[in-house]
């Protein structure tokens, strides 16, 4: 009886949201960067956080990983308050600028982060294959291109297979083939139960996501699926659909 109940409960997870934000308020340098924002990120989804540069995407992501001083509101991540110590091994965060050591080799970077998060060194080759850098082990990171450095940074966050990945513009400046490959990997991770919150300012990428969060000027305009957005606006192209949503919001 007990075993069956447990099986049922894994089929229907009790917690549906990996991230729940209620009334988040962030003031920076006297400006209200995010006045009041509430949202949910479904567990096991690839959720795209989309909006123009400077709309507050990075601030929101930093709030989720607990790196941002927030003024008010409640953020629950995997059932715990954002930034709590227990989450540090369960949330992977990749900043927009690659945060790896330029003066070390790819292997040395990953080896260091592997030790910090406590995974065996064998994971290094696996994660490098995921980002297509398996032949770069001995290369010094500062000699790599921007896109390659971004992938080293991404690989470092994948090492310990965290259940939540927060990725700030991970595909910027990548060649289209590699970008497509990465989105495939993101979905593969999501099928394995990982939740991915991915920001982008390129609307083309919206079509790759299961769920969308559309942001503008620190406000959340929509929290919906790509198809819902198409249905609501009557636009097939998601870029145009976003434009419609902005027009609706400003009442034109």
């Amino acid at each position: 009886m007990h075993a069956r109940w447990r099986r049922l409960s894994t089929l229907q997870p009790v917690r549906e949201s990996a991230v729940e934000i209620e009334d988040l308020n962030v003031v920076r340098g006297g400006n209200s960067v995010i006045p009041s924002l509430s949202l949910r990120v479904r567990s096991g989804s690839v959720t795209g956080l989309l909006g123009p540069s400077g709309c507050g995407k990075t601030t929101l992501m930093r709030s989720v990983v607990g790196a941002q001083i927030v003024t008010g509101g409640k953020i629950s991540v995997l059932g715990n308050p954002a930034g709590s110590a227990g989450l540090r091994s369960r949330v992977g965060y990749v900043t927009q600028a690659p945060s790896v050591y330029g003066d070390l080799t790819v292997a040395e970077n990953l080896s260091y982060f592997a030790k910090v998060v406590g995974v065996e060194q064998g994971r290094i080759t696996e994660t490098l294959q995921t980002v297509g850098l398996e032949d770069y082990l001995e290369r010094i990171v500062s000699s790599l291109s921007g896109g390659e450095r971004a992938r080293v940074s991404l690989a470092s966050a994948l090492l310990n297979r965290p259940p939540l990945l927060v990725l700030d513009e991970p595909t910027v400046g990548l060649d289209p083939l590699l970008r497509q490959g990465l989105w495939r990997d993101f979905h593969r991770l999501a099928r394995g139960g990982t939740t991915l919150l991915i920001s982008s300012h390129v609307m083309d990428e919206a079509a790759e996501c299961d769920d969308l969060l559309l942001m503008r000027e620190g406000r959340l305009l929509r929290n919906c699926t790509p198809n819902e957005l198409r249905g609501e606006t009557g636009e097939e192209d998601l870029g145009k659909a976003f434009l419609r949503v902005i027009e609706m919001a400003s009442g034109t």
């Binding site: 790196a67 540090r88 091994s89 965060y93 900043t95 600028a97 945060s99 982060f113 910090v116 998060v117």
Partner: peptide
Amino acid sequence: TSGTLERLMTLPM
């Protein structure tokens, strides 16, 4: 300045 400190501070360290 490189962001590695911020990364380390989000890790179990």
